[in-house]
């Protein structure tokens, strides 16, 4: 119990045996992240230099896995395809999520929380069921094409087992993340600044470009990352919506740990995926200017 007393205002005396309270608060989280995220990722990095033989990993240091990834053009195609798909999805989500998040933050009033929760509620239905339902709506025998057929129109080929359908699936799955990230930034944004901009003669567009957008860039960047990263690794969606020409990097990667059982090669693929993800995060990180973030650093 003594450790709790350190925060009391009279505790000016140097405490010898007391753990600093911030360590007590932050420590468990740090240990948790190290044990459940950092160590497993390090293990994967190590395994990527090992070998798999008859479904067993064994220690035999080599670069063969990376050489395979470099040599076989298929892996490059998967990676580029996944990256392009992720870029397209991020862009669509960015453009659509901004007005939506802005509306909830600015005009949602007392129902703001409910409006945001409505974006999260679809997650109560599993990804697979929602993808299957999307397939039921978009696919050849699906709602849209059947309705078109009844009116006597041609079915929309682009929606059936194509990369377009896979991208639509990704937009469907990840749009809520983007809206929520921008919303969380906008609720902390002082809209009075827009009045100031207006008084100083800025039109709505200029006020947006020079005030709202830069001051909410961190939230937007987090949103972009939250959409891009899972899209890049996506395995389930392209498999069911994308058709034969949509084999993604994630699909191939999960196969290494599933059907084919080549864990070492899969580990190397994981490392590649992780490095690309990190590069994207760093790239976004460089665009963040803390002085124009609107974040004043806690205590105020």
């Amino acid at each position: 119990m003594t450790s709790l007393e350190i925060q009391a205002p009279e505790a000016g005396v140097p405490a010898r045996w007391k753990i600093p309270p911030q360590l007590l608060l932050i420590g468990p989280g740090i240990i948790f992240i190290i044990v459940t995220l950092l160590l497993p990722l390090l293990a994967v990095v190590v395994f990527s230099f090992w070998k798999t033989e008859s479904y067993e990993l064994f220690m035999d240091w080599n670069l063969e896995n990376y050489w395979v990834l470099f040599r076989e053009p298929a892996y490059r195609v998967f990676l580029v395809r996944s990256a392009l798909g992720a870029l397209a999805t991020s862009f669509i989500c960015l453009v659509y999520a901004w007005p939506v998040a802005y509306f909830i933050a600015r005009h949602g009033g007392r129902y703001r929380l409910l409006l945001v929760l409505l974006l999260a509620a679809p997650f109560f239905t599993g990804v697979i069921l929602r993808i299957a339902a999307l397939q039921g709506i978009l696919g050849p025998g699906g709602l849209i094409n059947m309705a078109l057929g009844m009116v006597g129109l041609q079915p929309i080929e682009a929606l059936m087992y194509t990369p377009v359908a896979a991208t639509l699936g990704h937009v469907y799955l990840f749009m809520p993340f983007m809206v929520t990230a921008i919303y969380l930034s906008l609720v902390n944004f002082d809209f009075a600044l827009l009045e100031t901009a207006k008084i100083n003669g800025a039109g709505p567009l200029r006020a947006f470009v020079e005030v709202t957008w830069p001051l909410n860039w961190i939230g937007t960047a987090i949103g972009l990352i939250l959409v891009f990263i899972p899209c890049l690794a996506s395995a389930v969606t392209p498999r069911f919506l994308g058709g034969p020409k949509s084999t993604s990097f994630g699909m191939s990667l999960s196969q290494q740990f599933g059907e084919t059982g080549t864990w070492a090669l899969g580990s190397a693929m994981s490392v590649v995926l992780f490095v690309v993800s990190c590069a994207i995060v760093l790239l976004m990180g460089f665009t963040i200017n803390p002085r124009r973030s609107g974040f004043t650093g806690g205590r105020r």
Binding site: L37, P40, V44, I229, A233, G250, L273, S277
Partner: peptide, 9 residues
């Protein structure tokens, strides 16, 4: 870190 990577690692 993608979910797939968390799961696999």
């Amino acid at each position: 870190v993608a979910e797939l990577l968390i799961g696999i690692s």
